[in-house]
Design a binder for these strands. Structure first.
Lengths: 110, 110
DNA sequence: AGTCATTTGCCTGCATTGTAGGACAAATAC
DNA sequence: GTATTTGTCCTACAATGCAGGCAAATGACT
């Protein structure tokens, strides 16, 4: 499989999922994104991203058992696929390569 | 000015411009992108990105003197604005925050 | 039982970005 | 003057980013 292109937001989502771990469903993912980036995105925005990532083979999902809790609609849990992991690492490497040596020059200004 | 949103490719372009430095026009920028990311984008793709970045206030441009060289059409040189620089740093910081602590966990697989 | 609030998922639509291909411009070489 | 080289721009379409609102499922309250 050719490594798919990952947009900026898609990368963020994938990383957030990895951070949350096994129990990654929409709300904690959203929290994670907000916590680490300060961005507050709408749920709908996240779900479309999740759908498209799954369609591209970057994610697998399973619906959990309906919970016996207050507002218990069944959650959908997500897992990052190995291919997406590779793409992620590659994107990160490119970014770092482009940044390398730039910090010094840029800190003198700003 | 509110910090504008920067897509993945836009970030790449801005960083490449910073790397190239004062003489940054389309072709060297393209080379820089290819050299550091392996991506080979079409010139047209780059120009539209440059246009949009300038429209968003992320870039300034000036046309140089027509060169007295073989194919000497006037070049358009680009400079990154301070606001774009801030946005760039912020995006990088977010990404790194999301990555932090993840490498260890991920290297064990793949 | 019948609402009501709560938690979560999903659909629909539009805005913004990503990307290529080729037309056009200006200059030199012959 | 026509071919060649180096560059810029225009046009069009695909992919991503993003939100608002509706639907589903459950416990709580009366």
């Amino acid at each position: 499989m050719t490594e798919p292109y990952l947009g900026e937001f898609e990368q963020t989502v994938l990383l957030a999922i990895l951070r949350v771990g096994d129990d990654a469903y929409a709300i904690p993912i959203l929290d994670q994104i907000h916590e680490h980036t300060g961005r507050r995105v709408a749920r709908g925005a996240l779900y479309t991203a999740l759908d498209r990532l799954e369609a591209k083979g970057c994610l697998r999902s399973r619906v959990g058992e309906p919970l016996a809790e207050r507002g218990g609609r069944a959650r959908r849990y997500y897992t990052v696929t190995p291919g997406a992991l590779r793409a992620l690492k590659q994107a990160r490497a490119s970014l770092l390569r482009l940044w390398r040596g730039l910090e010094a020059r840029l800190d003198s200004k700003s």
